[in-house]
Amino acid sequence: MDKNQLLKRLTVLDFIAVDLQLYLDTHPDDTEAIDKYNSVIKEADMLRMKYEELIGPLYSFRSANMGDTFKWVETPWPWQPSANFNINEEDNK
């Protein structure tokens, strides 16, 4: 998985986790939704760790810093295109 796919998948999973949380607010005993929520955040956490090891920090205040200089200021800022991805054709299927 290259950086773009990793970031895209991570963003998708975080998006789903938020939607499931909103559903679980009003359906706290829906065990199927809880199972889905748990599997989504488990995979998201795994991808987050992998992304931060391979590419760079995703948070300024909670990402482990790799190396002896502060990577947060060296890697692209969150709003820069190079720190993001595009949803392209094959995603729109």
Binding site: T11, V12, I16, D19, Y23, T26, H27, I87
Partner: peptide, 21 residues
Amino acid sequence: PSQKICSYFEPMESLVNGTVF
């Protein structure tokens, strides 16, 4: 109405559609 959900969009599809439901 309270709605019980059973089916979900595919992961990328839900990001494109703006909802997982």
